[in-house]
Design a protein around this nucleic acid. Structure first.
Lengths: 220, 220
DNA sequence: CGGTGTATAGATGTATACAAGTACACTTTC
DNA sequence: GAAAGTGTACTTGTATACATCTATACACCG
């Protein structure tokens, strides 16, 4: 939503670096050295620095007080914060989706839900449709700031996704919650939609924390 | 909260540009020309560009699709979005403040409230203490992401503050809401605190929209 | 042997030169 | 006279050279 890529080198570098960070190809805690990274990406330091600065402002990189840029460490406390904010945002967006959804929007939500239901046995498909549903609601809410923050949170959470398992019973639960959420939006039940969205995300938070605290966050 | 300034030119330029944008010294809609601005600020284009990029990522400047950077226009719809997100965030932070406030934190909140009450006849003092109260709650909530987004919203709203009047009855109402909020936090009434915070911000939204739609957003 | 000062290698921050792209005005043509 | 094409001035994007600062290793002193 923020800005579409303008075919400049800095934007390509930004995309590539972001991909590597979210994939954990760039390991949490690792330092970025500009000359080496610039050589690896075949650009000069100027567009690289521009990309790095942008990533810092999204907290996908960290500026050390002494100078020098690192990939942020993974941290359980942060997960909790992220999901809490996400719960507040999703709850708001559910409210606003109730107010702003057109008939076509509702049809879209039902469609995503149906495809999700058909694929509930496949973990990655289910995840894909879950993300699609939340993205659709974010769009339908028509609040660019909520959408923007939601995307930033989603990027952050992405880095932790590698440590979560998608157990079948968890998938069923998510689908059930999604059904409740869509139903509430369809029937314009603002408070119910807000509550379902909030509790759904808090549930995801607790599940994620549970899995991570038992398996740990070690990258290698 | 994100990062403290490191005495580099780019950070100074960032601060100065941000100040000018929030003050409306840089007029909404105006384009920024790098060579001219660099000369005016007595730096080369490199640190200036770094500052500009950062401001773009905070939506305090806008990258035009064709190239060229402008100060974002003022827009009623955006105010509404900002306050809605802010309501969600303040509501969350009120919740978390209930959970995390120490005795010292509560004392601080009461102190701000008392000073606010003593100064309620002065518009600018009241505003100052209002901001301080919300900032204190944001800190007490101990959620860095909520705090970060809250600060971004506050910056955005700042640009619209020049068009609001602080009527005395509005100040009394705000103080009353602040009292209710602090009371709820002190008594750890999570749901009440969340509700009061939410409604308080929504009230501020409606008041702001009312004033602005009657006076308009024209800068000159 | 531990600690401190210093020298040095290498990183980041800044300035500037150059390349590429955009907008606008002017000319030319229908 | 209007519209389209072209040339020019100027802006943005990138590369590179230079200055400044940080960290580390080593020598020297207590």
């Amino acid at each position: 939503m923020a800005e579409q890529p303008r075919n400049t080198g800095a934007h390509l570098v930004y995309g590539e670096l972001k991909r590597q960070i979210l994939n954990l190809e760039l390991k949490p805690g690792a330092r970025i050295y500009e000359p080496a990274m610039a050589a690896a990406l075949q650009v000069s330091r100027t567009p690289l620095r521009e990309a790095i600065r942008r990533l810092i402002s999204e907290s996908l990189l960290e500026q050390q007080p002494t100078g020098g840029v690192t990939v942020p460490a993974l941290d359980e406390k942060v997960i909790s914060e992220l999901y809490d904010v996400r719960a507040a945002l999703e709850s708001l967006m559910a409210r606003e989706a109730c107010a702003n959804a057109t008939a076509a929007d509702l049809e879209e939500l039902r469609g995503i839900l149906a495809r999700n239901a058909a694929m509930v046995e496949f973990a990655d498909e289910t995840m894909k449709y879950g993300v699609a549903l939340h993205a659709a609601i974010a769009r339908i809410a028509r609040n660019s700031w909520a959408q923007r923050f939601h995307e930033q949170i989603a990027s952050q959470v992405e880095r932790y996704r590698h440590f979560t398992n998608n157990a079948p019973e968890r998938r069923d639960e998510a689908l059930a919650n999604h059904r409740l959420l869509v139903e509430a939006i369809v029937s314009k039940d603002v408070d119910e939609a807000a509550k379902v969205a909030f509790d759904h995300v808090i549930g995801a938070r607790d599940e994620t924390l549970r899995v991570i605290s038992s398996t740990g966050l070690v990258v290698e």
